[in-house]
Simulated scan of single mutants.
Amino acid sequence: MTHTVDITCGAGAVVRQESVEAELLRRNQELTELNAKLSRAQEQLLQSEKLASIGQLAAGVAHEINNPISFVFSNFGTLQTYVADLLRVLVQYEQAEQFIANPEVVKQIAALRHQVDLDFLKDDVPVLMVESREGIERVRKIVQDLKDFSRVDAHQDWQWVNLHHGIDSTLNIVNNEVKYKADIIKEYGDIPEVECLPSQINQVILNIVVNGAQAISGPRGRITIRTGTGDGHVWIEIADTGSGIPKAIQSRIFDPFFTTKAIGSGTGLGLSLSYGIIQKHGGRIEVHSEEGLGTVFRIELPISHDDAEVAAQVPV
């Protein structure tokens, strides 16, 4: 009696088993990648919440500072008027000195004039008043810029804004980070208003400008900001004369938590969050850099929110 074995059937079962295992491995890999993306998204969300809290705190502090500054500014204007009136009266008294008959009184007035250096005071007091008023106005401007910058887009309201105003306000906020390292050069083009989330765009500008300043060491450098428009987009370029980014890591600079700074000097989320913000706006952000020569970041934004939504639906 002859027995036969269905080898074909056995081989098919093996193939099916291998196929199932391969599918399980593929699914497992997809789940692992999805979990990693979820973890990164959670970390970014936590960082965003932290930034929002800092923004609310800064807005509150700015509001508290703005109250006393407002009445000091008002009082200073009145004081400036009073001093001007007193100086006018003083001039009249000076002209009346020659008509004083008592030599002793004239002598006392002359001694007092010499003691207080009256001529110098008359020249210097108005100058001091003007400089002080300019200082108060600058404080008010910084406070207002801080309030504008730290405003939280709680309802995600898209607004038509002048990007140049936002850039100027942001530069005012980061002035202390930049002024000792670089000169800011503005080469603004003629651009239309853009529909965007202004405080988020300001955050992107802040991240790039501060990074550019930190990349400059040695001789004083330059940070040049250019703007222009074309093909339904507005573009912003921020170029620094810093140390540049090595080719080997340029593809990783937008990755979450990637940083070349020392431990404790940065979260590695600044450029990652900036990339996400520009994507949310349906725009693009690119970097061109050469070691030793500097770095240029180029941002392109759709002019209208409708265009941004269409662009966001197109796979990159």
Rank of each mutant, 00 (worst) to 15 (best):
residue 66 N to Q: 14
residue 73 F to T: 05
residue 94 E to M: 09
residue 80 Q to Y: 03
residue 97 E to G: 04
residue 81 T to C: 00
residue 97 E to K: 15
residue 87 L to A: 11
residue 86 L to E: 09
residue 76 F to K: 03
residue 89 V to A: 10
residue 93 Y to Q: 11
residue 81 T to N: 07
residue 81 T to H: 04
residue 99 F to M: 13
residue 84 A to G: 11
residue 84 A to V: 08
residue 96 A to G: 08
residue 99 F to W: 13
residue 95 Q to S: 12
residue 72 V to S: 01
residue 85 D to M: 06
residue 72 V to G: 00
residue 99 F to C: 11
residue 71 F to V: 14
residue 72 V to D: 00
residue 78 T to A: 12
residue 80 Q to A: 07
residue 82 Y to V: 05
residue 84 A to Y: 12
residue 91 V to S: 10
residue 100 I to V: 15
residue 90 L to D: 06
residue 79 L to F: 05
residue 99 F to H: 14
residue 67 N to C: 11
residue 74 S to P: 02
residue 77 G to M: 04
residue 70 S to I: 04
residue 76 F to L: 06
residue 66 N to W: 04
residue 85 D to V: 02
residue 76 F to R: 00
residue 99 F to V: 08
residue 67 N to T: 15
residue 85 D to G: 06
residue 86 L to Q: 13
residue 92 Q to K: 11
residue 75 N to Y: 09
residue 88 R to Y: 10
residue 86 L to V: 11
residue 87 L to E: 05
residue 98 Q to Y: 09
residue 92 Q to F: 07
residue 66 N to K: 05
residue 91 V to Q: 09
residue 85 D to H: 07
residue 79 L to T: 01
residue 95 Q to E: 15
residue 83 V to W: 00
residue 86 L to P: 00
residue 83 V to Q: 01
residue 68 P to H: 02
residue 69 I to A: 03
residue 75 N to M: 11
residue 81 T to G: 01
residue 83 V to T: 00
residue 75 N to R: 11
residue 80 Q to V: 03
residue 74 S to V: 06
residue 69 I to P: 01
residue 74 S to K: 13
residue 87 L to G: 03
residue 92 Q to N: 12
residue 92 Q to C: 08
residue 96 A to I: 05
residue 69 I to H: 01
residue 69 I to W: 02
residue 66 N to D: 14
residue 74 S to T: 11
residue 76 F to C: 03
residue 67 N to H: 14
residue 99 F to L: 12
residue 97 E to W: 08
residue 85 D to T: 10
residue 94 E to W: 01
residue 78 T to K: 10
residue 84 A to H: 13
residue 75 N to F: 04
residue 86 L to K: 09
residue 76 F to Y: 10
residue 86 L to A: 11
residue 70 S to Q: 13
residue 83 V to K: 02
residue 85 D to F: 05
residue 92 Q to V: 11
residue 91 V to K: 07
residue 81 T to P: 04
residue 69 I to L: 15
residue 69 I to V: 15
residue 84 A to M: 10
residue 97 E to T: 13
residue 91 V to M: 09
residue 73 F to P: 00
residue 96 A to V: 04
residue 95 Q to L: 14
residue 84 A to P: 01
residue 92 Q to E: 13
residue 77 G to H: 03
residue 100 I to G: 02
residue 76 F to E: 04
residue 69 I to G: 02
residue 89 V to Q: 11
residue 72 V to T: 07
residue 66 N to P: 01
residue 88 R to G: 08
residue 96 A to H: 09
residue 71 F to N: 12
residue 91 V to Y: 03
residue 100 I to Q: 06
residue 90 L to W: 03
residue 89 V to N: 07
residue 91 V to F: 06
residue 80 Q to N: 14
residue 86 L to W: 08
residue 77 G to K: 03
residue 77 G to T: 04
residue 73 F to Y: 14
residue 89 V to L: 12
residue 79 L to G: 00
residue 100 I to A: 07
residue 88 R to A: 14
residue 79 L to H: 03
residue 91 V to A: 06
residue 80 Q to I: 02
residue 67 N to D: 13
residue 85 D to Y: 08
residue 82 Y to G: 02
residue 100 I to P: 00
residue 96 A to Q: 13
residue 94 E to H: 00
residue 97 E to H: 07
residue 73 F to S: 05
residue 71 F to E: 12
residue 93 Y to P: 02
residue 98 Q to G: 07
residue 71 F to S: 14
residue 96 A to T: 06
residue 93 Y to G: 00
residue 82 Y to S: 04
residue 79 L to S: 01
residue 98 Q to F: 08
residue 95 Q to N: 14
